[in-house]
Design a protein around this nucleic acid. Structure first.
Lengths: 146, 146
DNA sequence: CGGTCATAGTTAGGTAGCCTAACATTCAGG
DNA sequence: CCTGAATGTTAGGCTACCTAACTATGACCG
């Protein structure tokens, strides 16, 4: 504790974390296959599942700019999965809302993804799964810090 | 244990994991800023750091196709960070090798990234860091399964 | 009120990274 | 040799992101 042993440990953990983060991106992409909804599309739908929300909120949640969000949302609209309507309380804003078709598509895609991920998790033993489960909220916490 | 309570637990964990995975992608992207090396570029350099390797190996490690790897490698070459030379033992193959400049750039970028991630990790307490450290190899294991 | 500034989205145009298909070159086996 | 497999590169296209410029609405204030 003379100098900063904690600092070195932190750097070492950061190194490992960075590597794993990269592999996680890889893993995530490998889940995206087929003609299914993309991860980003599913996130958008899941946000709108609770209540209609603004384009700017979608952008913020996805970590992209508003024009990019508009683009994606228009595609979802053309696919009939969401509808766009002016916000009655502020006609500048646009509310993105899930259609019935959108909800069905999201639920089904979500289920299928979960099954695919669950199949991976089956290769872990109980302890490993417990550790993983404990780590997830911690990673979430890191995100908020950003 | 009558039906498959484990199955339901697995699905629930899968759901959480999927969400965190998405946020991890977000986190990872948020690290990519500036005019620095991208994550993919750093991975490529780190692979070549040990010994020269083939384009096809780079592609496989990054999870992309060979033409895409060629593209990235050519950019790195133009930046003077790697060199491309025919494999003496098989002149179809091309060996990608780190230049001195490439090694220096990689080491510096790596250090800076680690510092940035370490800054995030500082917001965690010791227990949380321990849990995170324990979870990393488990996530790696999932990747191999893919 | 009426003018000015901020806010919400869309449009336009450009870039980066990925893909498949088609192509050269080289190796390996009968 | 000659044919088929393996290794890269080239060509062309797609998607998701970006910034800049624009429209339209709201909000504040003299």
């Amino acid at each position: 504790m003379t100098d900063s042993p904690t600092g070195r440990q932190l750097l070492a953990l950061a190194q490992s974390f960075r590597t794993t983060l990269r592999h996680a991106v890889y893993l995530s992409r490998s889940m995206d296959g087929d003609g299914e909804l993309t991860t980003m599309q599913m996130s958008t739908l899941s946000m709108a599942a609770d209540e209609p929300l603004r384009v700017s909120r979608v952008a913020a949640n996805l970590g992209i700019r508003v024009p990019s969000a508009t683009e994606q949302i228009i595609k979802l609209e053309q696919a009939g999965l969401v509808s766009r309507q002016p916000d009655p309380t502020d006609s500048r804003a646009v509310l993105v809302q899930l259609t019935d078709k959108g909800r069905a598509a999201w639920e089904e895609a979500s289920l299928r993804r979960n099954e695919r991920v669950a199949a991976l998790l089956e290769h872990l033993d109980d302890d490993e799964r417990a550790t993983l489960a404990a780590a997830l909220p911690i990673i979430e916490k890191l995100n908020l810090t950003t």
